[in-house]
């Protein structure tokens, strides 16, 4: 079984803050990390590899430094990595990103299963997985919490929805996006770390993928950002003073007056 895991290198948004005075992004201490959800996809792939004969390839599209993200994932025990990098890929929306990933997966050829994190924390769109699967004309299942091979050609997928849980029988090849319940990501091992350090990672650009420059990057995108701005700050914060009893009384009265439900 050949499993491909698609990952993304993202800015560590949880450390990003807006400076309340200048309204600009405070970048200090913000590093590039592997999208946290993608580690769950890597873990899901390695779990399958633990139990059956499987090869795992990790794929990312990004600037040249995204190679670090691939090595980070190789150190967890993934077999191979491929970096998709080309100036022509810059500015990709989800459509152009999916076009590029789908082309790379076609080039890899013998892929049975593609795993992705449920979404990336910088854009939070959750679109690239489903769009890539649609372009490859294979079925997909999103928000999987459990992946169980049924036989060589089918997976039993347990997926989390807003209403509960669904169990699907999904034929391979397929794409699955995963949530954290698939399992705690394993730590890098010394052996894999050494291997990751030395691994040679092929770099594919548009020519390797047989893509036209107008079909990728900003030129190949359908959506366009026209404005970026800071979210409006809540200006009316009220700190409630007094003893605990007084605070409870005041808060209760304020909530009553603003007619919030439940009170």
């Amino acid at each position: 079984m050949h499993i491909v895991v698609c990952i993304k290198q993202v800015p560590d948004t949880k450390n990003v803050r807006i400076d309340p005075d200048t309204h600009t992004l405070v970048r200090q201490g913000v590093e590039s990390i592997v999208n946290p959800f993608d580690f769950f996809a890597v873990e899901a792939a390695l779990k399958i590899k633990d139990e059956r004969d499987a090869r795992v390839t990790v794929l990312t599209m990004g600037p040249p430094q995204a190679e670090e993200a691939l090595r980070e994932v190789l150190s967890r025990g993934v077999d191979d990595a491929v970096l998709l990098s080309d100036r022509a890929f810059a500015g990709s929306d989800t459509w152009a990103t999916s076009t590029t990933l789908a082309a790379a997966i076609r080039k890899l050829g013998d892929v049975d299963l593609i795993l992705c994190g449920k979404q990336a924390i910088d854009g939070d769109t959750a679109q690239v997985g489903p769009e890539t699967a649609t372009m490859l004309n294979i079925p997909y299942a999103t928000f999987a919490k459990k992946i169980e091979p049924m036989d060589d050609r089918h997976l039993k997928i347990t997926r989390q929805t807003d209403e509960g849980v669904e169990v699907w029988k999904v034929p391979l090849p397929a794409l699955v996006t995963v949530i954290k319940e698939v399992g705690e990501p394993r730590m890098p091992s010394l052996r894999h770390k050494m291997r990751a350090k030395k691994a040679s990672i092929p770099l594919w650009g548009i020519q390797d993928l047989g893509l036209a420059p107008e079909s990728v990057g900003l030129a190949g995108s359908y959506t366009q950002v026209v404005r970026v701005f800071s979210p409006p700050r809540r200006g009316n914060r009220l700190m409630i003073q007094g003893s605990v009893e007084e605070q409870a009384e005041r808060l209760y009265r304020l909530l009553k007056e603003s007619k919030v439900p439940g009170l």
């Binding site: 459509w95 939070d124 959750a126 769009e131 928000f143 929805t161 807003d162 209403e163 959506t223």
Partner: peptide, 23 residues
């Protein structure tokens, strides 16, 4: 932008070859 919409609307956008903005 529910678990249903976020799951299948990307398929619709990809089939129709058009842009989609999430959330």
């Amino acid at each position: 932008a529910t678990s249903m919409g976020r799951s299948f609307i990307p398929r619709v956008a990809a089939c129709l070859r058009t842009g989609l903005t999430a959330d």
